[in-house]
Each structure stands twice: as structure tokens, then as C-alpha cells.
Design a protein around this nucleic acid. Structure first.
Length: 826
DNA sequence: ACTAATAACATTTTT
DNA sequence: TGTTATTAGT
């Protein structure tokens, strides 16, 4: 029976949290305590109790989390899971806003500005207002506005708010409220919302139109929120708008893992949840199923140094495990070598694959050194946090055309491509257009369409060029709601001249740009065909855009998980992940904790929570390291070990030479008698490093002081010969596994059958048609993207014939056989 | 209007 | 040190 399946495999507290449905529930979930399990089982339970999927709203912060949960739920309830309102705050609210857009003065097709768009718009506004660009840095202004929006403060309220105005004046930026107002208007003019607007306008919608709020509050008769500690005031308020009446709400989070306050997250939302929702039942998940006792205890001892937290005692019943090991390196380069050696060693001796090892750092700039150390050993790695696929110039250019085709008022998109490829519309013309648009308060596009009546002083040539541009875009617009995303996308890339421009470039970079575009086209194809198979055959460019604008790097690479690569990422991005081995590097003052956190204890506590998050990613082994010198900003800086090292109970740490590192700036280095930043400590607090695996590591002070480190010293000791192929991936591919980028149109993988017409010119043979028409329940198929699955049911006729497939890895899916691509294997 | 040279700069960043 | 943005020069 389903009910048993849902409740089995849960511990007592988890089960209690899943079953409780008499009022608001707050689940404090310690690291690795099965938080997702509770959420998914609870949703499955609600469904099996008779809740309709569309009555359940489940909000997460990442698409990845949402997708994973959906998949896990569908293992219990099958295709029912597809009807759930489950997604990120931003994507769910964007969906609502598209439905209700007109009521807010937007259209269904509004653009979502990403951070770069809003920054560039702000920059333009600051320039237009004649403000000093040194004082008004776009990034800083953006932060101020973002903070205001996260606190639901509109431009008018901002201008009226004494405190904020005074704060701005004190910061020598008294015009921020004026910039905010203009920015607000310009976004509206462009039919665009930024990320913060997706929250703010949702709140405004519900606040200004009680009947709309009521509609959704009634529809969502149960609301669940993941990672509640990361919600900001806007998110918290919207959740309240939806749940204040029925209070059927369950939030899950861990105050100890709140690390996004700089993005507006307010830890008080979770700390004070019980006060807002009276009668809240509190559940504490305290058993950690992820890490060894040593790791859990070490993390506990660290977080205990923080003052503000919900008391809990996380424990593990796994093995005691190895002590956490600390390495002190002479330099950042040596730190890289040590870690790389350790990775090889664990791979060889403990048989821990690269994919189960991760290097975590505070800043992205630290990745380079590890990348190099790994490359020397031919250890494949995957670095997160570089330019994401969508941030590449060529992709952004193409997307800008797409955006204009869907919403020509999109100012940022227009400015981006009005002269790309070069068509002789220069900066002067653009600023004249902007000026004219500002004067009347219309969009740039409206001026482009009718330059004369807006009084543009243009010569014949420029006028003709504008005209040409306008009709180019108009041609795209006119077919934007008839041709599907893939077809139109391809047309745009060809007809806009972008592809031509890139083909001209015969340099390696140009070739790679071309490949990226091809890959991008393939991803549109994948997007369309996936939806088609699931029964939504008419995916337009707008649908594609609204999805990609809310995607991030981590969401897009599901297929990469089985790759044999070491993971390199910031501690922030590691949240929610786990690895058998974790290396936390750069534990130095002025790096971690970040120097920016020096001035407030709140920020310092957040840094400590970040360390807590990092440690608790580790299942079996956790290594810490610091370097005494580091090359930064072009010169060598000397640093002392991080203060956080003292926060971990020394009982759980093994030191490299002696004692707990002090953070004594005067401590010098590189002599055996000088313990180089290590203060003597009582001996019970540390253990001699007696691991036989450490032979290969020569403590740095035994080498000649000042000598440059040469990696040959390491080469012999670890002549590992694993996985010679070094792969470097700094970005991910949207929607599809990164295989060889295929040309346009994409080839169908051998053996995969397509039943009928798809956007790609058909290569279908009659034999394929008959083979899928004879599909029946009980067969096993292999799908191009979803993998192997059992056919549960086949129903319908002709074009509507569809099959329900239970995929081994992706859960249940309903596929329209007309579109589905798979082969029958049994 | 484009390229080349120089100056400024530099946490973290789920969306 | 590397990147990015602005500026000067053609």
C-alpha cells in the first residue's frame, strides 16, 4: 500500500512531521537529517489523502531542488506529481504573474531582466541623470534597490522613508530614491521585471486585489516551503498572504545553514515563525544520516560558538570515522599540491572516485590554483561558478533577439542588438532614441518604429537603417505566436545575421562560439521535444525564454552527475550537496572569514555558518587547509590561520605539526624551530599525525626556505595513472547532457525512434511508426533523455495516443507517442 | 565606429 | 594577477 511505503523508512520525528496536519508546522532540519525526505513524503502523503496536486504549493530556492523533489514524489504517486505547483519562488510567481499580468500593467509576455540587465539599465539611468558614476556605482545602487524591493518598499515609500533617505545621504548617495523611481518606470515601460520584481509584484497583486489573493489562497490549500531560513521579507510576506487564513503550512529549514543574508535572507523569518503562526508545532530532525560522528560533532562544536540559533543537538549513528585533518601549507600553490595529492591518494587507496571528492573555497578566485594542480596530475575536474552558459556573449546576443521577438519593448535586449551585427546604428543614434523615449515616457521600440513623430534628428541613411532593423524584428514578431520556439529560434539565428557574423570568425574562439550557438539551438530543440512528448506540443519562444531566464548553472547539468570529476565550487554553492570527501581550503584570516565580515558579529556568525555548511557536506573525510602566503591581486600576501579553526573542538582535529593554529600576525614561518603560526597548546588537544598515508607530504618548513616549490617532488610519490583524460568544464549545457555538440538540425541518436513529425525535418522511417504503435503495457523502453522505463499504460488513439512510463531514474512520465523518442528493448 | 591601450577593480550570489 | 571598463587614437 502506498501509505506504508510513504511512512516506512522514516524515523519517528520525520514521521511525526509528515503526518501532522492540524496546523502550521516548523521543521528544523539539521544538516543531513532527511529534510527533503520529509518534504517529499509529506507531499506524497497529502496526495494520497486526497489533496489534488494543484492544491499543493511547494516552494524551493533552486530549480534543482524542485525537480529532485518532483522526481522523488512521482516515485510514490506517479504522474499525479506533474500537477503539483512545485518550483522556485521565482518561477511559481512568474507563472502567476503571467496569468495576472494585465492587472498590474504588464503583458503576459513580460521579460525577466537578469542581474546584468538591471545593472546595465541602472548604469544608463545614472548616466542620463548626470550623476557621478564614481559615487553611484551601478552595483551598489542595485543592491540598495534590491534591498528595498525585498522589503516591499516601493519607490514612493522609499522617498518618504526618513531613515532610508538619511542613510543614503550619509553614504553620499542622496539620489538613490530618484534612481529607483526612474528604474521602476523604465522597467515598466519595457514590460520587464527583474528578479526582485517577481516577488514584489506578486505581493502587490495579492495586496491590492484581495479577490486574486483569495483565489490563490484557496487554490493552494497546503503550502510547503523549503530552506525557510533563506527567505527574505517579501517571500515571507507572500507566503503569509497565501496562508494566513487556513494556516495549512509546513516550512522546513535550518537556521544554522542561513548563509544568504547578503541576498536579503532574514534568519528571523524562521526564528520567529512560531510567533507569526500561533499554534505552530515544532519538529526537530536531529539525526544526521550523512556524516561520521566525528564530522557531525566537529560541526556542532563550531556552530555552538554562535549565539543566535534554535537549540538542537545533531547527532550521527554512523561510524566515528576519521579525524578531520588540517594541513598548513607554505603557499597557496603548495596548498593546491597537498590537496591534489590527497585526492589521488584517496582515489587509489580508499577507492573513492573523483566524483565523490570536492574542494570548497570561499572565493571563486581560489579555484585556479587547484585547477592547475589537478591538471598536472590529469585529474578531471568540474569548476562551478565560472561564466554560465547563458552569460556568454554569443548566447546573450541570440537571446536578446529572442526577447525582442517576444517583447519588442525590452529595452536592454534592444540596446544589445540594435547594432549587432553592425548595421551602422551607433551610440549617438541610440542615445537620441533613449532621450526621445524618456521625453514621452514610451519604450525605445516605439521610437524606433516612428522616429519622425518623436522628432528624431536623423539623416536619411540612419533612418533607412532603423527602418531595416525595425522590419527585421517585426518579421520575427509576426510569427512569434505561430512558429514554435525551435523553428523560430533557428530562423532568428540565421536571419538576424548573428550566425553569419560568427562564421566569419575563423579563430578558435570564433569556432567555440559557433559551437555554443549550435548547442544552444540543440537545447531549444530538447526543450520543445520534451514538452511535446509530455503533451504540450506548442512551445513558443516566450515559453522557452521564461524558463531559461530563471535557470542557473547547477540546475542544468543533471546528466553530469555520474562523471568522474572532482568538484570545485564555493562553499555557498555547495549547500545541499554531499560528498564522501570534502576539502575546505583557504582557512585564513582575511579570506575566510571574509574581511568584509570583520565589522559585525552578525556577519561573522554568518561566515561561521558558512563553515558549518561546508563541513557538513562531508560524509566520510573532511580536510581543512590554509596557506601562509597567497598570491592575491598581483602580490604575495601573508596570512595567519583562520580564527574558525579554534572554534572546532580540537578533539576532532588532527594537526600537521603541533597544536591549534593561533592567529598571531607576528608569527613567522619557514623554520622548524618556529612553529609558524601554530601556538603551543595542551597536548590532549591534538594528536600526532601518524597516518601512514602522509609519508608523501614533506612539511613545508623542511624544504629550503624561500625556495620555489617544484611539483616534481610530488610526481614520483604519486604516479597515479588514473583517468588520463583531463576534462575542464567551466560551464554547463542547458537541458541536455554535454555530448558532442550537434549541428543544426540535431541528429537523432542511433536507435532512437521518432514516431511522427517533430520540428526537425523528419528522418522517420515507416518501420519506427509501426513499432511504437504496437506499444503495450509491460514492455520496457529506453528513452533518449529519460532512460529506461516500464510501460505502465497505453491509452488514446491517433495523435492523442499516450503512454505512461515509469522511468527508473526520473519517475513517472506521460508521453505523447506522436512525439516520443525511444526504443523498445523488451 | 572600431581597435588598441590604459586605468581601475577585485566576496559570497539559490533567482 | 587577471579581468573589465573607459578612453584615446585612427
Amino acid at each position: 500500500m502506498i501509505a506504508d511505503e510513504i511512512l516506512d523508512s522514516l524515523n519517528e520525528e520525520q514521521r511525526a512531521a509528515v503526518l501532522y496536519n492540524d496546523g502550521p508546522a516548523l521543521v528544523i532540519a539539521g544538516a543531513g537529517s532527511g529534510k527533503t525526505r520529509v518534504l517529499t513524503h509529506k507531499i506524497a502523503r497529502l496526495l494520497s489523502e486526497g489533496y489534488a496536486p494543484w492544491n499543493i504549493l511547494a516552494l524551493t530556492f533552486t530549480n534543482k531542488a524542485a525537480n529532485e523533489m518532483k522526481m522523488r514524489i512521482s516515485r510514490f504517486v506517479g504522474t499525479l506529481a506533474q500537477g503539483l505547483w512545485m518550483g522556485t519562488f521565482h518561477s511559481v510567481f512568474a507563472r502567476i504573474l503571467r496569468t495576472e499580468a494585465e492587472a498590474l500593467g504588464f503583458t503576459h509576455n513580460f521579460t525577466i531582466y537578469d542581474a546584468a540587465d538591471s545593472k546595465s539599465l541602472l548604469k544608463a539611468i545614472i548616466k542620463e541623470m548626470g550623476l557621478d558614476e564614481k559615487t553611484y556605482k551601478p552595483g551598489t545602487v542595485q543592491n540598495h534597490i534590491s534591498n528595498a524591493k525585498n522589503r516591499l518598499i516601493l519607490p514612493s515609500a522609499y522617498a518618504a522613508d526618513r531613515q532610508m533617505i538619511q542613510a543614503d545621504e550619509a553614504a553620499k548617495m542622496p539620489a538613490i530614491h530618484a534612481i529607483y523611481r526612474r528604474y521602476w518606470e523604465r522597467c515598466k515601460q519595457a514590460d520587464a521585471m527583474d528578479f526582485d520584481d517577481l516577488l514584489l509584484y506578486t505581493w502587490l497583486l495579492f495586496d491590492g486585489q484581495p479577490e486574486v489573493r483569495e483565489k490563490y489562497a484557496t487554490q493552494f490549500s497546503y503550502v510547503l516551503v523549503d530552506e525557510y531560513q533563506d527567505t527574505n521579507f517579501a517571500q515571507h510576506s507572500i507566503v503569509w498572504q497565501l496562508t494566513a487564513t487556513h494556516q495549512h503550512i509546513c516550512v522546513v529549514g535550518d537556521d544554522a545553514q542561513s548563509i544568504y543574508s547578503f541576498r536579503g535572507a532574514n534568519i528571523d523569518n524562521i526564528l520567529k515563525f512560531s510567533q507569526q503562526y500561533t499554534g505552530t508545532r515544532l519538529f526537530k530532525l536531529q539525526q544526521n544520516y550523512r556524516s561520521t560522528q566525528t564530522i557531525v560533532n566537529a560541526a556542532n562544536s563550531l556552530i555552538a560558538k554562535n549565539s543566535e540559533q534554535i537549540r538542537k543537538e545533531v547527532f550521527s549513528e554512523k561510524d566515528k570515522g576519521e579525524a578531520i585533518r588540517l594541513f598548513g601549507a607554505y603557499s597557496d600553490i603548495e596548498e593546491g599540491e597537498i590537496v591534489a595529492n590527497k585526492i589521488t591518494e584517496l582515489c587509489h587507496r580508499k577507492d573513492i572516485p573523483y566524483s565523490q571528492q570536492a574542494i570548497l573555497y570561499r572565493t571563486n578566485a581560489q579555484s585556479r590554483i587547484f585547477e592547475e594542480a589537478l591538471r598536472k596530475r590529469s585529474i578531471p575536474c568540474r569548476i562551478y561558478g565560472g561564466l554560465s552558459f547563458y552569460q556568454r556573449k554569443e548566447i546573450k546576443d541570440v537571446i536578446a533577439y529572442f526577447r525582442l521577438a517576444v517583447n519588442p519593448h525590452d529595452e536592454e535586449a534592444l540596446k544589445r542588438i540594435i547594432n549587432y551585427p553592425a548595421r551602422g546604428i551607433g551610440n549617438t543614434t541610440v542615445s537620441r532614441i533613449t532621450e526621445a523615449a524618456n521625453k514621452v515616457g514610451c519604450s525605445l521600440w516605439e521610437v524606433v518604429c516612428d522616429p519622425i513623430s518623436h522628432g528624431l534628428p536623423l539623416n536619411k541613411g540612419t533612418h533607412a537603417k532603423l527602418q531595416a532593423f525595425q522590419s527585421l524584428i517585426n518579421a520575427f514578431i509576426s510569427v512569434a505566436d505561430t512558429r514554435n520556439a525551435y523553428e523560430l529560434g533557428q530562423d532568428i539565428i540565421r536571419q538576424s545575421g548573428v550566425m553569419n557574423d560568427i562564421i566569419q570568425d575563423r579563430t578558435p574562439e570564433g569556432m567555440s562560439r559557433q559551437e555554443n550557438i549550435e548547442e544552444f539551438v540543440a537545447s531549444i530543440h530538447d526543450f520543445c521535444s520534451t514538452r511535446e512528448e509530455e503533451g504540450n506540443p506548442h512551445m513558443m519562444l516566450g515559453d522557452f525564454l521564461s524558463e531559461v531566464s530563471l535557470l542557473s548553472e547547477l540546475d542544468t547539468d543533471k546528466g553530469n552527475e555520474d562523471e568522474e570529476k572532482v568538484t570545485l565550487m564555493t562553499m555557498h554553492s555547495a549547500k545541499g550537496l554531499e560528498f564522501r570527501v570534502v576539502y575546505i581550503v583557504g582557512l585564513e584570516e582575511n579570506l575566510f572569514p571574509s574581511p568584509m565580515a570583520q565589522d559585525s558579529y552578525k556577519q561573522m556568525e554568518e561566515e561561521r555558518r558558512l563553515f558549518y555548511v561546508a563541513i557538513t557536506r562531508a560524509e566520510e573525510y573532511c580536510f581543512l587547509s590554509f596557506a601562509r602566503s597567497r598570491f592575491r591581486y598581483g602580490k604575495t600576501e601573508f596570512s595567519t590561520p583562520s580564527r574558525f579553526l579554534k572554534d572546532i573542538d580540537p578533539h576532532y582535529i588532527t594537526m600537521p605539526d603541533a597544536g591549534i593554529p593561533s592567529h598571531n600576525p607576528s608569527a613567522t614561518i619557514n623554520s622548524p624551530t618556529d612553529n609558524g603560526g601554530f601556538a603551543r597548546r595542551p597536548f590532549h588537544s591534538w594528536r600526532e599525525n601518524n597516518d601512514e598515508n602522509d609519508r608523501s607530504y614533506t612539511p613545508s618548513w623542511q624544504r629550503r626556505a624561500g625556495s620555489t616549490f617544484r611539483d616534481e617532488e610530488y610526481a614520483d610519490t604519486h604516479s597515479g595513472n588514473y583517468n588520463k583524460e583531463y576534462t575542464y568544464t567551466s560551464s554547463s549545457t542547458p537541458f541536455r547532457k554535454p555530448v558532442t555538440p550537434h549541428t543544426v538540425p540535431p541528429a537523432i541518436p542511433p536507435g532512437m525512434k521518432r514516431v511522427s513529425r517533430t520540428p526537425t525535418p523528419s528522418t522517420t522511417s515507416p518501420a519506427n511508426v509501426s513499432s511504437s504503435e504496437g506499444l503495450y503495457a509491460g514492455q520496457i523502453i529506453e528513452h533518449e533523455r529519460f532512460g529506461i522505463g516500464d510501460v505502465l499504460k497505453v491509452e488514446g488513439d491517433g495523435d492523442n495516443r499516450k503512454a505512461t512510463i515509469r522511468f527508473r531514474n526520473v519517475g513517472d512520465k506521460q508521453l505523447l507517442l506522436r512525439f516520443a523518442r525511444f526504443k523498445i528493448i523488451k
